[in-house]
């Protein structure tokens, strides 16, 4: 038992140090050290990965949404926060694309975690996908003094059209 515990000690610390100093043993090597990656996984939660939101949603807009959308006559800018490994982010993107097709006043921009991580910190975004809105002056939409964020893809259409109506 003595020898086993000594081996376990050595093993544990070899693993820990190799994890901290970025010795990637796996078949795929990724840039950055494992603890930084852990930070990324832990901080920016993919909601559908955790099972908090559904994983499928229809992209086509309903008649009600289209009617309300047609009434909008002021410019609205939409930001979508996404990442590469988030399975529902493409769905969110596709729905917002449909919005822009119906009404040219609405424009959208995609913020990727891998390339534009600094924006995640400025708007305190920790869930994926998240949608936020700006008016023509570039002022972010707030609700009760907090940045109005739409998290996840459950009932995304309705939430977005409500938020767009609030922007004015």
């Amino acid at each position: 038992m003595k020898i086993v515990s000594i081996i376990a000690f050595i093993m544990a610390f070899v693993l820990l140090i190799s994890g901290i100093y970025g010795l990637n043993i796996g078949p795929v090597s990724i840039e950055g050290r494992q603890y930084q990656q852990a930070n990324q996984i832990g901080s920016y939660i993919c909601l559908s990965c955790i099972g908090l939101t559904g994983s499928t949603v229809s992209h086509t807009l309903t008649d009600d949404t289209i009617n309300r959308l047609k009434k909008i006559d002021y410019p609205v800018k939409v930001w979508v926060f996404t990442s590469n490994d988030c399975p529902t982010c493409p769905d969110a993107k596709a729905i917002i694309l449909n919005f822009t097709v119906e009404n040219p006043n609405i424009s959208y921009e995609e913020i990727k975690l891998e390339t534009q991580g600094q924006f995640f910190d400025t708007y305190a975004v920790s869930e994926l996908p998240t949608v936020i809105f700006f008016n023509k002056d570039g002022v972010v939409l707030r609700k009760n003094n907090f940045v109005h964020k739409i998290i996840g893809i459950d009932r995304l259409q309705e939430k977005i059209i409500e938020a767009i109506e609030m922007v004015s």
């Binding site: 515990s5 093993m11 610390f13 693993l15 820990l16 994890g19 010795l23 852990a38 832990g42």
Partner: peptide
């Protein structure tokens, strides 16, 4: 962070989760 969540994510990414196992192992020993 949750060690089990990290373990799964590292495994999905195709890496050996040395960091997570090392941290847990260091506490366990």
């Amino acid at each position: 962070s949750c060690p089990i969540g990290l373990l799964q994510n590292f495994v999905i990414n195709g890496q050996v989760p040395t960091y997570v196992l090392g941290t847990m192992g260091a506490v366990f020993v």
